[in-house]
Amino acid sequence: MPTNIDSPLARRIAAFAFLVFIFGSTFWVLSPFFASLAWAGILVYVTWPLHQLVGRRLPGRENVVALLMTLVVAATLLLPLLWVMFTVVGDVATASVILKRLAAEGLPPLPVGVRDWPAADWLIAQYGRVQGDAEWARAQMTALGLLDATALKAFLGGVGRNAAKFGIAVFALFFLYRHGDEVLTQFRRVATRWLGESARGYIQAVGVTVRAVVFGIVLTAVAQGVLAGLGYWVAGITAPALWGVITALVSLIPFVGPVVWIGLSLGLLAQGDTQAALGLFLWGALVVSWVDNLIRPLVISGPTQIPFLLVFLGVLGGLNAFGLIGLFLGPVLLAVSVGIWREWLVHKRVG
């Protein structure tokens, strides 16, 4: 039986297929830039109060305000990154020399102070077994890519790609500052049309969660890296800036940062520098971890009204699923899910 191409069902199928093709193609074209656009959107949202303040000082000059905000945000991010990058490059060179010497000569003997540690005999025996096998140390360093030029080239290539993404994000900042109100208004209209008035609550949950994650995870991790780096420098740790950056990156995952400064404290203790080891340990326990254990949960769980455990799982799951941008996407998705769950509970009680 022939199909009537002018029937309402056929037209709906054709319209649906057309929309799937158009939106699918659009998604495919823009997919390489989603991370950059997401970072730009997060930066614009977090700094939007400052944008409004500057806009009130310069009324009717939206382009100038957007350009000023773009330059301020880019400089705020770029200048510290450049300083850290140049500092870390020098520290990496120092660390590379040490690693190559260890690979060629083997591990150094344990300091004399280790003999006073608990279970010192077992530790000395295990270390002596590894120390006597220089090939084992080289194999482990090779497995980690520490002696592989290809891994270094891949790392530099990743730095170049991330620099390009950063440039795209900065370019997008201007347009988001300039047309952010219009974009958000249109998004709210579309979301309300499809999801009803509940969409406003979901959008608010997304905004609150993003701000809480920025201040509760990213900034606290940076603060921990800076404070820990200062402690490393005072304690005489080699390459303190490099270790500070490592501490900041590791601290993006809640409660993991102490692994770095505890390990370095044990290293100082093994070298017989008991005073520096104790000082670094106390600095990490009383100052650095105080930021992680007290400020971070308060900043995140307070505004979002979400248990910190869910935020913690959202950070880990987001990083695993989406990469670095998942640091925000994971908690945001959980925040929306919790909002929907609570709305269902309210409807259930009302019903």
Rank of each mutant, 00 (worst) to 15 (best):
196 G>H: 10
15 A>C: 01
122 W>M: 01
219 L>W: 13
64 V>R: 13
204 Q>C: 08
30 L>A: 15
308 F>I: 02
283 W>I: 12
74 A>K: 01
318 G>D: 04
285 A>Q: 12
16 F>M: 07
35 A>K: 01
156 L>M: 13
209 T>H: 13
24 G>V: 12
335 A>T: 11
150 T>L: 06
300 I>A: 07
228 A>F: 02
237 I>H: 03
39 W>P: 03
4 N>H: 14
144 L>H: 08
351 G>Q: 02
220 T>A: 06
328 F>A: 03
228 A>I: 05
280 L>P: 04
30 L>N: 08
145 G>A: 07
62 E>W: 04
304 T>G: 10
138 R>L: 10
170 V>A: 11
92 V>M: 08
23 F>V: 07
226 V>M: 06
118 P>I: 02
332 V>L: 06
171 F>Q: 03
89 V>W: 09
127 Y>W: 10
177 Y>H: 08
62 E>S: 11
53 L>C: 00
189 R>W: 08
148 D>S: 14
328 F>M: 05
282 L>A: 12
227 L>Y: 00
63 N>Y: 05
69 M>E: 09
115 R>L: 14
34 F>W: 13
83 W>F: 12
48 W>D: 15
65 V>I: 07
137 A>C: 04
320 N>W: 15
91 D>M: 03
186 Q>W: 13
141 M>D: 06
175 F>C: 09
52 Q>S: 08
131 Q>L: 06
328 F>C: 05
13 I>C: 02
252 L>I: 09
310 L>I: 15
11 R>P: 02
22 I>T: 11
34 F>Y: 14
1 M>N: 07
297 P>L: 11
71 L>K: 09
300 I>E: 13
243 W>L: 01
109 P>I: 01
89 V>Q: 15
43 L>V: 13
105 E>L: 00
327 L>F: 15
66 A>R: 11
132 G>Q: 06
73 V>C: 05
273 D>Y: 13
91 D>Q: 02
144 L>R: 10
241 A>K: 00
35 A>M: 04
306 I>L: 07
302 G>W: 00
93 A>Q: 07
9 L>V: 05
84 V>E: 01
347 H>A: 08
238 T>F: 01
275 Q>N: 01
124 I>N: 06
203 I>Q: 13
341 W>M: 10
102 L>H: 10
40 A>R: 00
285 A>T: 13
100 K>P: 03
281 F>D: 04
325 I>S: 12
180 G>K: 02
257 G>A: 15
20 V>K: 02
158 G>C: 11
348 K>N: 05
330 G>I: 09
39 W>H: 05
